[in-house]
């Protein structure tokens, strides 16, 4: 069953066609990577799906809802969690508070003004559980601005999954990381996205091939191929268009 679908997406920016008839199907439970050389339209596609860009034609369907025009908070309430390419944690709040804001929202505690937030025991427990899974429990009370880059990225990823969403959208989760950090991040993402539906936009081929169940290759705004990692690796078109350039 497809949980996420884009139907014939076109997007043009000031007369320049960026996306051209993109029809993408993501099945429930699969980890789907979107790759492509620079300027292929990956980020645009990501933003059309959940970033507030409205396509000039076509629809985005999630769990049989049309989410083409959905606002960010509606997307969250439909069950989509996302991460940002540029780390968007709350810099002046602790790791704990960062995750807690997600947990609170999932429980629908958004306008509560009559309880002290620190006294909500089950919220605290749930948040701590998530921090442990993220290997951030030791940094629980550090402000996000004091965390290392790698830890901050873990937190960023954590905020995408803390609401236990039906779809996780990751925008270059390992951007700017060192080799070791990337390795840890990939392990973390793999463990915590087990059995979940995930769409990931990524540059790094190692990351893509070690995470994705299925891969879609974009090239000049069009889908070049979709398939299992092995098929993509062996696809001559893809090799010509993309992989050849980076000598994989």
């Amino acid at each position: 069953m497809n949980i996420l679908e884009t139907r014939g997406i076109y997007f043009d920016y000031k007369g320049l066609e960026v996306l051209f008839d993109i029809s993408l199907q993501v099945e429930k439970g699969e980890r789907h990577a979107v790759i492509g050389p620079n300027g292929a339209g990956k980020t645009t596609l990501f933003n059309v799906i959940i970033g507030g860009l409205i396509p000039s034609r076509g629809k985005v369907i999630f769990k049989e809802h049309d989410i083409t025009h959905a606002t960010p908070h509606e997307l969250f309430r439909h069950g989509i969690g996302r991460s940002f390419q540029l780390t968007s944690t709350f810099a002046r709040q602790t790791a704990f508070q960062n995750i807690r804001s997600v947990v609170l929202s999932r429980r629908g505690i958004r306008f509560n003004m009559w309880r002290r937030v620190d006294n909500l025991g089950d919220i605290t427990n749930e948040t701590d559980e998530i921090l442990k899974k993220l290997n951030l429990f030791n940094e629980r009370n550090f402000p996000a601005s004091a965390l290392s880059y790698g830890k901050n990225r873990s937190l960023e990823f954590g905020m995408a999954i803390a609401s236990d969403p039906d779809l996780i959208m990751l925008d270059e989760p390992t951007a700017g990381m060192s080799r070791d950090e990337t390795h840890d991040a990939v392990n973390l993402i793999r463990n915590l996205s087990e059995g979940k539906t995930m769409v990931i936009i990524e540059h790094d081929m190692d990351v893509v091939f070690s995470l994705a169940d299925r891969i879609t290759v974009l090239h000049h705004g069009e889908i070049l191929a979709t398939g299992a990692p092995e098929d993509i690796k062996n696809n001559q078109q893809v090799r010509d268009a993309y992989l050849g350039e980076t000598e994989v």
């Binding site: 908070h73 968007s88 944690t89 709040q93 804001s101 306008f111 509560n112 937030v117």
Partner: peptide, 19 residues
């Protein structure tokens, strides 16, 4: 309160809060 923590989050990063 929880609402207070939302306020602080809006100060830090309103876009994220919306998401």
């Amino acid at each position: 309160t929880p609402f207070g923590s939302v306020m602080i989050s809006i100060r830090d990063n309103a876009q994220r809060v919306e998401y």
